[in-house]
């Protein structure tokens, strides 16, 4: 199992936490808050898509 595939067990509403992503990116020369906000929006969308299928 690679590092990217390790069990995350993220919080509700999260698929891949920003903290995991930013650690992989390493240095962040720009405004992290801007990127974080949009990452989390799309992550929340993915989360809702995944759970949609389990909530028939």
């Amino acid at each position: 199992m690679s590092d990217k595939e390790k069990l995350l067990n993220p919080d509700p509403g999260v698929c891949v936490p920003w903290e995991v992503k930013v650690e992989e990116i390493g240095e962040f020369p720009g405004n992290e808050a801007i990127a974080k906000k949009e990452w989390e929006k799309l992550d929340d969308f993915a989360y809702n898509f995944i759970w949609f299928w389990a909530q028939r």
Binding site: L7, L8, N9, P10, V14, C15, I50, W51, W53
Partner: peptide, 16 residues
């Protein structure tokens, strides 16, 4: 139980 969201992606979605 250990990771519901990941289990759904890795197993449930392919199963359904």
């Amino acid at each position: 139980i250990a990771g519901p969201t990941e289990w759904l992606v890795n197993h449930f979605l392919p199963n359904i």
